[in-house]
Simulated scan of single mutants.
Amino acid sequence: MQKLLNIGELADFLGFTVAAVSAHLHRKNWDAVPKPIKLGRRLAWPADEVQAWVKEKIQSRGEPSHRRGPGRPRQG
């Protein structure tokens, strides 16, 4: 049977706080955390998928990332 990580275990594995992981999830920032699966109302991450996601990040770190614009428009 495959090991599933909860949000606390994912945060420990990635070196984030639970609050930081939650914030990335809320913003759907899939560059910062892998996509979860839903188990009823709970979120979980298959451990092998998280490890594959990290390996992909390591391999792609030399490639330029998608860059946003200069920031928020100024009101004036």
Rank of each mutant, 00 (worst) to 15 (best):
W53F: 03
E9Y: 05
G71S: 02
R61H: 13
V21R: 01
E63F: 08
A20N: 13
S60C: 05
W30Y: 03
G62N: 09
G76T: 09
I7N: 04
P70C: 05
K38S: 08
P64K: 13
Q51R: 15
L25W: 04
A44I: 05
L14Y: 02
L5H: 05
P46Q: 00
H26Y: 13
I58C: 06
K28V: 09
L5I: 01
F16Q: 03
F16K: 06
L39W: 10
D12S: 14
R42W: 13
S60I: 06
P36W: 12
L4S: 02
E49Q: 15
P64R: 13
E9W: 03
S60D: 10
L39G: 07
R41T: 14
L43C: 09
L25D: 08
V54L: 12
R74P: 06
D31I: 08
I58A: 13
A23G: 06
T17F: 05
P34W: 00
N6V: 04
G69Q: 09
V54C: 04
G71T: 02
D31Y: 10
L25T: 02
R72E: 11
G69D: 08
D48H: 14
F16E: 04
D48S: 14
K57H: 07
H66T: 11
A11K: 01
E49M: 11
Q51M: 13
D48L: 13
K28P: 02
Q2A: 09
